[in-house]
Computed example of a mutant assay.
Amino acid sequence: MLFRRQDRKPPTPRAAEWIELMLDDETLRVAVRRHPQARRLTLRVRAAARDVTLTAPPHVPLAFAHDFVQRHREWVRLRLVRLPQQVPFEPGSVIPLHGTPHRIVHCPGARGTAWTAVNAEGEPVLCVAGEAPHMPRRVQDHLKREARRALAAAVRHYAAALKVDVGRITLRDTASRWGSCSAQGDLSFSWRLVMAPPVVLDYLAAHEVAHRLEMNHGPRFWRLVEQVCPARREAEAWLRRHGSDLHRYGAE
């Protein structure tokens, strides 16, 4: 008798899983993320997204995960309380631009969109024209324009230094990666880098351009980065200490 092999059906995607956690009379939804390589339950409070996730092995019952989250209620609450205060793009808010604090000033009768200036007290300010409801978008658009200008200049500099070609430059608002380089040479950066000190944006540009020669993080790659950007470790130290704070600006 001949047996015909049956092709295996792809596994059915698991439906999204959530665990509700009561914190200070409010219900917090904790996203459950199943990972095939996870060996234990791991809770994480993400500063950029200001949310809570639980990474769990595929075989762990949801009821067990629920009990785990409930037992760590106080841990979650303390981590959320310690998150930096959110700063909306509105009049009076102070936001960093190239590492320098700028106070947002509404100039409803002025022409244009947004520009930097210095007020009578010598304080750097970001002036925003137009109606108040459009201010958050105009501030963000200005930051993105500045980010594109600064990143394009830095990329050109390091591409020339390393004698490589690069493709398109794309700006995103990523929570976990400051930059990336595709196999085709297209570069992607977080527009929030424009708020960091110039040395940080400069380093990220050097980092991604160096991937045009080494698509890895081996010794040769780091030698290339440090060859053209000696301030690498200073920039990395700043990102470790303050990088997550950049995501608190622009909250509605």
Rank of each mutant, 00 (worst) to 15 (best):
G250S: 09
Q140N: 09
A183C: 10
T174V: 06
W18G: 08
L43D: 05
T113K: 10
D7A: 11
V128T: 03
V52I: 11
A16K: 15
R4T: 10
S244A: 14
Q37R: 15
P124C: 13
L171Q: 09
F3E: 11
L187D: 02
T113D: 13
A159I: 07
A65N: 02
G112V: 06
M135D: 00
A48F: 00
V118C: 09
M1C: 08
T12W: 03
T12L: 13
S182G: 14
R177F: 04
L246V: 00
G218Y: 06
W75G: 08
R137I: 02
S244H: 00
V32W: 03
F189H: 01
L23F: 12
H102E: 12
V125M: 11
E131T: 13
F89V: 01
V87A: 01
P36H: 14
V118G: 08
W115Y: 12
P219M: 03
R44A: 14
Y158W: 10
V87P: 00
S180M: 11
L41C: 05
R232S: 09
F221D: 06
G185Q: 06
R50Y: 04
L23N: 12
A132N: 01
V199A: 07
V76E: 05
H142W: 12
M135F: 01
P101A: 10
A31R: 14
R137P: 00
H207G: 02
A38F: 04
H142P: 01
R220A: 13
L239S: 04
R82F: 00
R79V: 03
R33F: 02
P88Y: 02
Y249R: 00
R149M: 07
W191Y: 08
Q227K: 06
R233F: 05
L204D: 01
D165M: 02
A210L: 03
Y203P: 02
V30M: 08
P91T: 06
T55N: 03
A38Y: 05
R8K: 14
W115S: 09
L193Y: 02
T100I: 15
F221Q: 04
A237Y: 04
L23W: 11
E208V: 06
R79G: 10
A150N: 10
R232D: 04
L23D: 13
C229S: 11
R40V: 03
V45F: 10
L171I: 09
H207M: 03
P230H: 11
R34N: 08
A49S: 15
P133K: 04
R223K: 09
I169A: 12
R220E: 13
V32C: 08
V200S: 00
L143H: 01
L193R: 00
S182D: 12
L21P: 06
L97T: 06
R138G: 01
M1W: 08
D7L: 10
V194Q: 00
Y158I: 01
V200T: 01
M22V: 13
S93G: 08
R138F: 01
T12H: 10
R149C: 07
